[in-house]
Computed example of a mutant assay.
Amino acid sequence: MSNPSPLSNESIAPSNPETERDRGRLRRSVKRPAQFLSFWGAIALPFVHLPLLMQGLGDPHVTLAFLALLAINVLALYLGHGYNQ
Rank of each mutant, 00 (worst) to 15 (best):
W40A: 09
L64E: 15
K31L: 09
G82H: 13
G24A: 14
K31M: 07
F47E: 03
L7K: 07
S2L: 15
R32F: 09
P6M: 08
S5R: 08
R25I: 11
T63G: 06
S38F: 01
A44H: 03
Q35F: 13
D22T: 06
S11L: 04
A71D: 06
E18C: 11
Y83K: 03
I72A: 00
P60C: 07
F39R: 03
G80M: 05
A44P: 00
L79N: 05
N16P: 01
N73G: 11
L70P: 08
S5C: 15
L26S: 08
Q85E: 14
Y78K: 10
G82Q: 12
A42Y: 01
V74Q: 13
F36A: 13
P33F: 13
V30Q: 03
I12V: 15
A65E: 13
L52P: 00
M1V: 14
F66N: 00
Y83Q: 01
F39L: 01
H61R: 07
A76H: 11
Q55T: 14
L77D: 06
A13V: 07
H81T: 07
Y83L: 01
A13E: 13
A65C: 14
R23D: 14
L77A: 11
A65G: 12
L79Y: 02
L64Y: 12
A34L: 06
A42T: 02
K31E: 12
A34S: 03
P17V: 07
H61T: 06
A42W: 02
Q85R: 14
V62Y: 02
D22L: 12
A68G: 11
R21C: 03
N9P: 09
R25D: 02
M1Q: 12
Y83V: 01
Q35M: 15
A65M: 15
A44D: 04
S15E: 14
P14S: 05
D59I: 00
S5E: 14
L37F: 08
S5L: 14
L53H: 07
L75W: 15
L57Q: 05
L26N: 04
L79Q: 04
A42G: 02
Y83E: 04
F47I: 02
L50I: 15
T19A: 13
P60M: 07
L53F: 12
A34T: 07
F66Y: 06
N3C: 06
A34P: 00
L50A: 14
P4L: 04
L7P: 00
V30F: 04
E10R: 08
I72P: 00
L26Q: 09
H81E: 08
A44L: 11
H49I: 02
A71F: 09
L7E: 10
F47T: 03
L75S: 11
L75K: 10
I72S: 00
